[in-house]
């Protein structure tokens, strides 16, 4: 099963829509609620990152019997130093993002914590691609 969701940079009203839809699908598939929570928290943080930093993005979600793979690809400024961005507390978020309750430098570390596999590929002034993978049973 493949699902695709467009994510619009700067539109906080829509942030979380893809995560909400994916949560509904995983519930219908009777995935363990604790695993659903990990997946949708990671995806939601990813959505917020695109809304906060990029111009636009696409979430491609592939689900099979054993796992879910999420590819979050955006057009945007990119991340100059991925290792630095992964540090807890490091942020480049705007005051507007902070007013929304984010931008404390916790998003990427929390995405890593909540996924079984995470990879970030980024090119400055082009965009960022984040791949997340979670297995339904351990």
């Amino acid at each position: 099963m493949e699902l695709k969701y467009k994510i619009q940079g700067g539109n906080f009203n829509r942030a979380g829509y893809a995560s909400s839809e994916v949560k509904k699908v995983l519930k219908q598939l009777n995935v363990d609620p604790k695993i659903i929570k990990r997946i949708v928290v990671a995806l939601y943080e990813g959505e917020v990152n695109i809304v906060a930093h990029a111009f636009n993005g696409l979430a491609t979600v592939t689900i099979d019997a054993e796992k879910i793979k999420i590819v979050l690809k955006d057009s945007g400024p990119g991340i100059p130093d991925v290792e630095k961005a992964m540090e807890l507390g490091f942020t480049t978020a705007s005051p507007a993002v902070r007013e929304m309750g984010f931008g404390a430098g916790m998003g990427l570390p929390n995405m890593k914590k909540n996924s079984d596999f995470m990879e970030i590929l980024s090119t400055v002034n082009v965009g960022t691609e984040v791949v997340l993978m979670n297995y339904f049973s351990k």
């Binding site: 906080f12 009203n13 942030a15 979380g16 949560k23 609620p33 928290v41 939601y44 929304m100 984010f102």
Partner: peptide
Amino acid sequence: GLANLQTIRTAEMAD
């Protein structure tokens, strides 16, 4: 004290 849509979305994801 944060009242916006993202508070609800966050709660939704965090059960």
